[in-house]
């Protein structure tokens, strides 16, 4: 650990903690999850970056949306994202969540995921290689450093709009709003 790092640790331990301990939700949203096993096991070993898959969203702060998002999955994605404790980061993995990818004309697929939950970064490609995950992680580190990974804040600020979009796509949602009106600031 060089001196620069040490000063950063002393200045903002919380931020450094968020950087180096990214626990990802173990949630297989689409076909892109096939790239995750090699990246967390012996071949690429994500744990050296502090990235570790955990069982429930309550314990996690990184959400990888790996691959296409069907309408049915969107419900679970929103629920999972809302259950993650703040601060939380979400990364769209593959071209499908960005713009629909090869499912661009499917009747049952969500095209632009960031209309429904805020996304902090995208990994383009179909499929992206596991190395791309690490590029994304290091990129996320710089974003966290510069306070630019602020998806969760955007979600809080524009919750009404997000909720309206979600209800537009899914109809009535079974759970109450995460934020009531007065917390909007």
């Amino acid at each position: 650990m060089d001196r620069n790092q040490l000063i950063k640790w002393l200045k903002a331990p919380a931020k450094m903690g968020h950087k180096y301990s990214l626990h990802a939700v173990y949630f297989c949203t689409g076909c892109g999850i096939i790239e995750v096993p090699p990246s967390i096991t012996a071949r690429w070993d994500a744990e050296r970056f502090g990235v570790l898959p955990v069982a429930t969203p309550r314990q996690a702060n990184l959400f990888l949306i790996t691959g296409y998002v069907s309408v049915k999955t969107l419900r679970a994605i929103i629920r999972t994202y809302e259950q993650m404790p703040e601060p939380k980061y979400s990364v769209g993995f593959g071209s499908c969540p960005i713009n629909g990818g090869m499912y661009w004309d499917s009747y049952n697929t969500i095209k632009h995921l960031d209309k429904y939950i805020p996304i902090d970064g995208w990994i383009a490609g179909c499929m992206p290689r596991p190395e791309a995950i690490f590029v994304a992680v290091t990129h996320l580190w710089t974003l966290i450093d510069k306070d630019m990974a602020d998806g969760y804040k955007r979600y809080r600020d524009h919750y009404q709009a997000y909720r309206a979009n979600q209800e537009h796509a899914l109809g009535k949602l079974e759970w109450p709003p995460l934020f009531s009106n007065e917390t909007k600031s």
Binding site: A14, M16, S21, A42, R48, G50, P85, P87
Partner: peptide, 20 residues
């Protein structure tokens, strides 16, 4: 595997304490 740094649990705990 190479494995995480040996201080990883400390980092995790610091991160967890700052989460809501």
């Amino acid at each position: 595997r190479y494995g995480p740094p040996i201080t990883q649990p400390v980092i995790d705990v610091i991160r967890l304490f700052s989460q809501k």
